[in-house]
Computed example of a mutant assay.
Amino acid sequence: MALEPISASPAVGDFKLLSEHEEQTPGTFFGGKPVLHLHSPGARLRISQEELQSQPLLNQLSDSGTLSQQGEQVVVESIDVWVTSRSLTLWSASKSVGVQIPYQTITVHAQEGSSVYLHLNLSDANTADEDLVFVQLRIEPTTIEAHEAPAEDSAQSQPNGHGSQSPAQALFKAISDCQELNPDPPEEGDGEFDETAPGATGWITSDNMQDFLDENGEFRMPEGVTVIGAEDEVAETEALGEGAGRTRTAAEADGADGAEDETKWQRTG
């Protein structure tokens, strides 16, 4: 799944505030504004020079005035981070461009000191293993904007994050929460087993009894149904000889019992 470019600066009015969202029961779970979980203006983005240049959408976030070298990595300054229920957005105020990172591309994320590490898989589901494209980047937030509902007045800057949380801890938690809201889609042909489906577990119940009865109401095994152990039973029956594994009628059973009784009388008489 690829990164997505944006050309319009995100604004608080584009989202539903998390505090407002948590206090109300939504009228619908579809459509509507995405929920803003965290806003961190003026963050730093750290990435290797090679990966930055290989990804045009990330590379466009930097310019000579916001780019600096730090060991093997480059640091892009002045990045606004928006963590919403739909995507993670990085916006460059100096370049007036941005990029949205779908949560499904984030394969690993972790807090590393004052930054949050992200490991991204930018390949689609049909890409061969040898052609997969991965990118590693680190976001270092410096300030968290605590946007509250209008009744509680405007946004307040919290350099130390949410309450006792550091900015990195708050960013990590926000990304974690939003990832849970956006699980990976099931792979094609990888449907889950439904144990509640009639006959799914192999048991005959009132829900699937009609599948095992013929037009006369007699029991029959439906075509295409595999009976576990049937091959072993057939092999055992053939080894035991004729009549093995066959259910006897009442008359046959009475006859056999009578013969057995007579034989027993003869032996013991």
Results as ranks from 00 to 15, higher is better:
M1C: 13
M1H: 00
I6L: 05
S7V: 09
S7F: 09
A8M: 05
A8H: 01
F15C: 06
K16V: 08
K16D: 00
S19T: 09
Q24R: 01
G27T: 03
T28Q: 11
T28R: 15
H37L: 07
A43M: 00
R44Y: 04
L45H: 02
E50I: 08
E51V: 02
Q53S: 05
L57S: 10
L57A: 01
N59Q: 12
S62M: 01
D63F: 14
D63N: 15
L67M: 15
G71V: 02
G71S: 06
V74M: 07
V75P: 10
E77S: 11
V81C: 06
T84G: 06
S85C: 03
T89N: 15
T89P: 13
S94C: 10
K95A: 13
V97H: 10
G98A: 12
V99A: 14
Q100F: 03
I101V: 15
Q104R: 12
T105I: 09
Q111H: 04
Q111A: 07
V116G: 07
L118H: 11
N121Y: 05
S123R: 03
A128G: 03
E130R: 11
L132K: 14
L132H: 15
Q136N: 08
I139N: 10
P141V: 10
T142G: 04
E148G: 12
E152P: 00
E152I: 05
S154W: 08
N160P: 06
N160L: 06
Q179Y: 02
E180M: 14
P185N: 01
A197Q: 14
A197I: 01
P198L: 08
G199Q: 12
W203E: 12
T205A: 12
Q210P: 00
E215D: 09
I228N: 03
G229E: 10
G229R: 07
E236D: 04
E236M: 07
T237P: 02
E238F: 11
A239V: 14
L240C: 11
L240F: 00
E242D: 07
T249W: 04
T249N: 05
A250D: 10
E252C: 04
E252G: 02
A253C: 12
D257Y: 02
D257P: 00
G258N: 07
A259F: 14
E262M: 15
Q266D: 05
R267V: 10
